[in-house]
Structure formats: C-alpha cells, structure tokens
Write a protein that binds this DNA or RNA. Structure first.
Length: 592
DNA sequence: TTAGGGTTAG
C-alpha cells in the first residue's frame, strides 16, 4: 500500500470511527483493513485510533483490538494504552481507564509520563482519592513525580476530591508552576464551592492567565451571584490579548444570567461571533431562573429555527419552563420529542419531567415517571416529595421520605423544605416538629430561613401562634418579611390582635427598601379598617418609588392557560393563552 | 498528556 493511500485510509477510518453509532460489524471490517493495510506500523496513527475505540466499541472488543495490534507488532511501550485510557477517561465509563492502566501494569508494560495525567483524569471522573493516592505512589516510584504534567494532574485530582491540604502542599512545593497548575487548582476550588479561595488564588497568580482561567473564575462569580466581580473579570477578559473564544463567551453569558443581569447577558449573546448549543442552553436556563419562562420558550424556538437541535441539557431547562408556565401540552410535546429523537436519558431530564407533570396537575404521571427512573438522586426524591406536598398528600410524602432514607439516600436541605411544606399543607404538626428537629440532630443540616418560614406557617395555620412567635425569637438569623408575613397571616386568620400589633412593630424595623414590608403593612392596616394608615403607607411607597411586583398564577384548562393576578382575582382576571402560544411556537418548528 | 462553558428538585 502506498503512503498516500495509507493516509487516505487512515483519514477515512477516523471519519467512520467518529460516527456516533458505528456498528460493531462496521468496526470489525475497519479493524481487518487496519491490520492488513500496515497502518498500525505507524504507531501515532494507531494511537489516534485507540483513543476513539471507547466511543464505538464495547470494552472487551476495544481491549482485544489493542492487544491484537500489540501482539502483531510486538509493541512493548505504553502509547496505545495511554490513548485507550484517555479515550475512557473522556467517555461515560472512566472506570475502564483505570482497568486498562492496571492491565497494562499486569502485562509488564511500564507507564510513562503521559500515562499518569490520563489515568488521574479517570480517577477524577470515577474512583476518587484512594486510587489517586496509589497512582501517585507509582509515579514517585517510577521517578515521574517531578514532571510538571504529572504534578498538575495530581494537584487537580487531590483538590477535586476535596483533599485540599494535600493539594495545597503539592502546589506550594512545585518548583515551577504554569498556567495549568494555577487554573487546575482554581477550577477545583470553584467546583468544591470554595469561592474565596479561588478568587484569592486568581489574584495572586504570577503567570499570565488564559481563557481557561477566566472561564473558571467566571463560573465562580456566577455561582455566587457576584455581579461586581463578574464585571471586573469581564473587563480583564476584554483587556487580555487572547480575545474571546466561544467557551469564554459562553461563560460570560452564563455569569450575567446567573447574576440575573439580563440586559448585559443579551448584549453578550448578540455579540457572540458564533453560538453553539451551550450558548443557547445557557440563555434558556438563565431565562427560566430569572422567572421569564415565556421568553425561555421563545428562545428555544429561535434556537431550533437557527438549526441547532436541543440535547438532554437543553430539554431539562425547557421542561422547567413548561413547569413554571403550568403548560401541560408543551411539557408533553417535550416528552414526545425526547422519545422521537432518541435523546439521551439522564437523571436531570427524569427529575425535570417528574416536576413538570406534578406542577401541571398530573400527579399520577409524575409518580409513574419517578418509579420508572433507573437512577434517582437526591433531587429526584425531592421532586417527588415536593410533588406530593403540593398536591396535599402529606402522609404519602412522608412515606417517600422513609423509603428514601431506607435505601441509604441522604436527604439535603431541600428535602426538608419539601417535607415541612407537605406537613404544613396537610396540617401534620407533630410530624413537622419531628422533621425540623431531625434536620439538625440526625443529618447535621442547620435550618435555613426558609425552613423557619415553613415551621412558622405550619404552626400558625393550626393556631399555635405563641409557639410560632417563640420559634422566631430563637432563630439564629434575623427574621425577614416572609417570616413576619407568615405569622401576620396566621394572626389575621385567628384574630390575635395583640400579637398583630407586635408584628407590625417588628415590620417597621425591617429593611426600609423591602417592598414586601410595605405591602404587608398596608394589608394589615386595611384588614383592621385603619384606612388613614393604609393611605400613609401607599403614599410612602410612591414617594420612595417602590412599586409592588404583581404575583401571577397560571392555570391551564383544556390546553388553554389562564393567567391570574394574585389577590385581585375579581377585578383583574386576564385570560392569556400562554400555553397555546407556547405550543404553537414549538409546533411551528417541529418539522424543521 | 494536565486546567475551562450549559441541565433537574427549593
């Protein structure tokens, strides 16, 4: 075979292997060609192919292929194994990367300085710190511990596994650090939620930052809602010579959205030189988080119109938009789209479906969807418990909680919000008290202000006003307008005038710019017929330029959504065909 | 060969 035809064949094989659904039979033919063509003589061409094997072959076949090439060519060096490990580290089965590493050692092939970074990447994705420590030991034994790439990978893996002290010692003792050393540690801090540490490291960098560094720190700013910090990093990015690549542009976009700065996000989005599925999905999910579900659906339609098809991540956010709108027909459309287009199922998508069906009134379908989920995480359990809570099935919600604990799934703070809300909606006072205590006593979860809010609501609804007031006085944080509002509502319902006056005094001491305070005050005065005070509060609001945001409820009936303005049902009922509009948007583009 | 972007529950 000539060199030219060999190269052409190599290119053709790579193209075939890169196809997402290369069949096994197809691969066998490729493999036969590969061996007979002599291409495996070129070890780098073979290494390229080895890295692609995990994506298209089951592990035994991939492994057999490498062994076959090794036997035929009598290789005794680790190049092909490194490639295979790297392929697995990037696949959804990174544990196989570690298996390849172990087999390689057992076969008497020594790892080199390329092996350690790739096998450590497999540890990050799969097995954790115990395996990483063993690999660290092996790297020292084989004299690769002073290699910069190996050190960078070790610092990163220890920090990702939350072994921050070990990571920091290794980092501090490095004789030479490059931008990857710094960014590797910063990104691990960000993933672990150590925002301050990440920021501190970012400011003390003594090498030039690059796009990856900016991306990691932008993620941190977004996650912590630090708009000022994000804007400062934005300015640094603009000053930096590397320019704005797609990943950095997307990170900026997402930062602005997470900080709920829609105008700046829109500007970034408009100015992006190109947009990929991440740009669109960031925008869609950002709009949902900013409580703009209708705009999110519009954006989804624009995305499809531009020729970008959604994946499982996009559709999770779209389902969340449908849930916020209460739009069952749109949610069903997404469900069918997933089936029709063979979208990859994952726990996010399943959880979003459970939530969507529950919020659109279909509790039975939500429960069925949940039971059919092959893998459930704590969020999935929270979604199903929340579903039962919002439908008033308190006892069943508690039953699911027991099941969850029974299988060894640890509840988190959100689980207890769902449980307390279930107890509140079903009047289960004693169960609520027990759950509230369980949080701290058994799970070491200090209650958030929202948990106190649920408890005040639960106690207040059943007339236990004094107990609710005492609980507020024991709170470790300052009670906000929602806490006082919950007690105020209970006082009005149970006619306790003395406590009501006391609450009004507390409300007046709260943050003067808090809109809710004025609304509560005004409503409370109105309920007591003190119209002069009502006028005084309203005037004060006008003077301060405070405008009450209108609460809205959407209820879908026979595919038509009706929007209600909260608290003013008789006067301001508006029928807006939100769901039909939404569905039309989706259907228009269905045949694209 | 090592570091970087979007997802669910509240």
């Amino acid at each position: 075979m000539s060199v030219a035809s060999g190269q052409a064949l190599h290119a053709a094989l790579l193209r075939l292997l890169r196809r997402p659904r290369s069949s096994r039979r197809c691969f066998q033919r490729i493999h036969a060609l590969l061996l007979t063509s002599g291409l495996t003589v070129d070890s780098f061409a073979a290494a390229d192919l080895a890295a692609l094997l995990p994506a298209c072959l089951p592990p035994p076949a991939a492994f057999a292929t490498i062994n076959h090439i090794h036997r035929i060519r009598r290789y005794r060096f680790p190049l092909l194994f490194n490639s295979l490990i790297s392929g697995y580290a990037r696949s959804d089965r990174p544990n196989l990367g570690i298996a390849v590493y172990k087999t390689m050692l057992a076969d008497g092939i020594f790892p080199d300085h390329y092996t350690f970074p790739v096998v450590l990447k497999s540890c990050i994705e799969f097995s954790g710190v115990a395996e990483a420590k063993q690999i660290h030991g092996a790297s020292v034994k084989l004299c690769f511990a002073s290699d910069l790439f190996v050190q960078n990978a070790l610092v990163h893996v220890y920090a990702i596994c939350r072994e921050y002290d070990d990571a920091r010692v290794l980092f501090d003792e490095m004789p030479l650090r490059d931008v990857v050393s710094w960014t590797g540690l910063i990104s691990a801090y960000v993933k672990g939620g150590l925002y301050r540490e990440a920021l501190q490291l970012f400011s003390s960098m003594d090498v030039a930052r690059n796009a990856a560094t900016f991306v990691s720190i932008l993620v941190a700013c977004g996650r912590f809602g630090d708009l000022n910090g994000g804007q400062m990093v934005h300015a640094l990015v603009l000053k930096h010579e590397c320019g704005l690549n797609l990943v950095a542009g997307n990170a900026l976009l997402d930062m602005y959205l997470k900080c709920e700065s829609l105008a700046e996000a829109k500007q970034i989005f408009d100015e992006l030189p190109e947009r990929d599925i991440v740009s669109w999905t960031s925008f869609i999910s950002g709009l949902v988080q900013c409580k703009q579900p209708e705009q999110a659906i519009d954006m989804f339609a624009s995305m499809r119109a531009s020729g970008v098809e959604p994946d499982n991540v996009t559709l999770s956010s779209v389902l969340s938009a449908c849930a916020s709108l209460g739009s069952l027909c749109s949610g069903r459309w997404v469900h069918e789209y997933i089936h029709r287009n063979g979208i990859k199922w994952d726990v996010h998508l399943g959880t979003a479906l459970v939530d969507m069906y529950a919020k659109c009134g279909c509790l039975d379908i939500a429960l069925n969807t949940f039971s059919e989920m092959p893998f459930k995480n704590v969020s999935s359990w929270n979604a199903v418990i929340g579903a039962l809570a919002m439908h008033g099935h308190g006892r069943e919600a508690l039953g699911y909680f027991e099941q969850m604990v029974g299988i060894g799934m640890n509840p988190n703070e959100v689980t207890f919000l769902a449980i307390l809300s279930a107890c509140s909606h079903s009047g289960l006072v004693e169960e609520g008290r027990c759950s509230f205590n369980l949080m701290t006593e058994s799970y070491n979860l200090p209650p958030w202000i929202e948990h106190y809010g649920c408890m005040v609501d639960l106690l207040g609804r059943t007339g236990l006003l004094e107990e609710a007031y005492k609980l507020i006085q024991t709170m470790p944080m300052r009670p906000d307008v929602h806490i006082w509002g919950a007690l105020l509502g209970a006082c009005k319902a149970h006619g306790n005038q003395d406590l009501l006056q006391e609450i009004l005094n507390h409300l007046l001491k709260l943050e003067p710019h808090e809109t809710g305070v004025y609304v509560l005050l005004s409503n409370a005065y109105a309920a007591r017929g003190r119209w002069a005070d009502v006028t005084r509060v309203r005037k004060l609001m006008r003077q301060k330029g405070i405008k009450k945001e209108t609460g809205i409820s959407i209820v879908e009936v026979d595919g038509e959504a009706h929007k209600f303005v909260v608290g003013e049902l008789q006067n301001l009922q508006e029928d807006i065909l939100v769901a039909s509009y939404t569905l039309d948007k989706l259907l228009q583009l269905d045949d694209l």
